[in-house]
């Protein structure tokens, strides 16, 4: 259990607090999702709003990995966010935790593949790509994507990647730039 030692109590509380904060900010997006899903449902495309917003829901993991730069912070950040969401009475129950772990592992893989050295655009694109691939694999089974027509799958995949990049890449970068400028992350940032 060596990894346990890398984590201090304040880091754990920080990630959990960020999970709660983001969860509360995201609450409003549920209504947007519902309205959009209802609009797209008659066309059989109601997964499109899900794909559009998924990047937002995966952002805690990508942001945690990019901001804290500790191995495993993406997994822990996204997992804690999903646990908090589940405890809040998020309606998806235990499956939230499974999605949380998978999204976290997906985001972490991007940083792992770039050897935890590229905290720049390369790292962000990599984490957006791996998060897209891992979550998409899970949806092939869970949301029945495996049974859909190919053109639709490709469309969903492209939209999902764009969403991951916009929220996990552009927005994460904008947020961490603001944090950098305010010098609150001195102790963990190296470059």
């Amino acid at each position: 259990m060596k990894w346990v030692k890398d984590w201090y109590l304040s880091d754990i509380i920080l990630l959990a607090l960020i999970g709660v904060f983001f969860g509360i900010i995201f609450l409003g997006t549920n209504y947007i999702y519902d309205i959009l899903a209802a609009v797209f449902a008659p066309l059989g495309l109601s997964q499109i709003p899900n794909e559009l917003l998924l990047g937002l829901w995966c952002m805690p993991g990508m942001l945690a990995g990019y901001m804290l730069r500790i191995k495993g912070s993406s997994v822990l950040g996204e997992f804690l966010a999903s646990v908090v969401e589940m405890l809040f009475g998020g309606q998806w129950g235990a499956s939230t935790m499974i999605s949380g772990v998978l999204q976290g592992v997906g985001s972490e893989l991007g940083f792992t593949l770039t050897r935890y050295k590229h905290y720049d655009w390369l790292g962000l694109v990599a984490t957006a790509a791996t998060t897209t691939i891992v979550t998409f694999g899970w949806d092939l089974a869970r949301s029945g994507y495996a049974k859909l027509q190919l053109w639709l799958l490709l469309l969903f995949f492209v939209i999902r990647f764009c969403s991951m990049f916009v929220f996990g890449g552009l927005l994460t970068r904008a947020i961490t730039d603001l944090l950098d400028r305010s010098h609150v992350l001195k102790k963990t940032h190296t470059n």
């Binding site: 209802a38 449902a41 109601s46 027509q149």
Partner: peptide, 19 residues
């Protein structure tokens, strides 16, 4: 609460599914 996502998944498969 889950009615809209459920109908969404239903119609996605019903209209654009295979098999």
């Amino acid at each position: 609460v889950p009615l809209i996502p459920a109908i969404g998944l239903w119609s996605t498969q019903y209209i654009n599914g295979t098999g």
